[in-house]
């Protein structure tokens, strides 16, 4: 009885059906909350000509950066792509097409895509390169630009806990784009640190309801830190 049981038994099964030329929407901010093992599986499968939608494109040899050396990404839609020399090289030579998108607009494009809203107006980017070729309209005396929403053939997500129905809970700022991306995939694949029994997650505390989730797998995570900033123990008052 499969019913609402979203659990798959391998990463191969988790990413089954991904093909060259597809669009993949990924959660994560920097290296925080990225679906690192699902990305590794795309790397292993050598799927090519992908359009990838994610706030960033990883760093060299980690996260989405893994997909650069074998030229698996054709087009990247992101808000910030610094700190990655190979990315910069491919962008400068034109091997990689890049659509720089303001972070809030990117989040809203994905949210709207998942919510069945094809486009929205925002003031963000008005009068800048981002607005080129886009419709302008005035509301209450202010100029806005029309931004189209985004959906993907696959959405790849990292959450903290899930039950087998695919109800998800994220942890701290590893949430970021993940709940939005989860709504925007034709097939949404989620990897988590822990799968708990149905009924264990408090319905009031679930961040992403299982209706958005198609496949679920439990993994182990490296969780690399990009900017390790600390202070001496005596000086801290946080958390």
């Amino acid at each position: 009885m499969a019913g609402f049981d979203k659990i798959v038994s391998s990463y191969e099964e988790a990413m089954a059906g991904i093909e060259d030329g597809m669009t993949v929407v990924s959660g994560g901010f920097g290296s925080c909350g990225i679906p690192e093992n699902l990305i590794k599986e795309i790397y292993r499968k050598e799927t090519k000509n992908l359009t990838v939608v994610s706030n960033n494109c990883g760093i060299e040899s980690y996260g989405l950066g893994l997909l650069l050396p074998k030229r698996q990404i054709k087009k990247m839609i992101a808000s910030y792509v610094g700190e990655n020399a190979e990315f910069e090289r491919q962008m400068m030579t034109g091997e990689l097409e890049v659509e720089l998108t303001p972070q809030g607009t990117l989040a809203e494009k994905i949210r709207a895509g998942g919510a069945g809203i094809p486009a929205f107006f925002t003031a963000t980017g008005y009068g800048t390169q981002v607005a080129e070729g886009k419709e302008n309209r005035q509301f209450n005396g202010r100029e806005y630009i029309l931004e189209e929403s985004i959906t993907g053939d696959f959405a790849i997500i990292k959450a903290w806990k899930a039950d087998r129905y695919g109800n998800l809970v994220f942890r701290k700022t590893a949430r970021n784009f993940n709940p939005l991306a989860a709504t925007a995939g034709k097939i949404t694949v989620v990897e988590v640190e822990e799968i708990v029994e149905v009924g264990e997650l408090d319905p009031d505390q679930i961040h992403t309801p299982g209706i958005y989730v198609d496949r679920l797998i439990q993994g182990t995570f490296e969780k690399r830190i990009e900017q390790r900033t600390t202070q001496p123990l005596s000086a801290t008052t946080g958390e």
Binding site: A78, S79, Y80, V81, G82, E83, E88, M91, M92, L100, P102, Q103, G104, T105, T124, G125, T128, V130
Partner: peptide
């Protein structure tokens, strides 16, 4: 050319 992040 690193991108605008959230600045816009």
């Amino acid at each position: 050319i690193k991108g605008m992040g959230g600045a816009m």
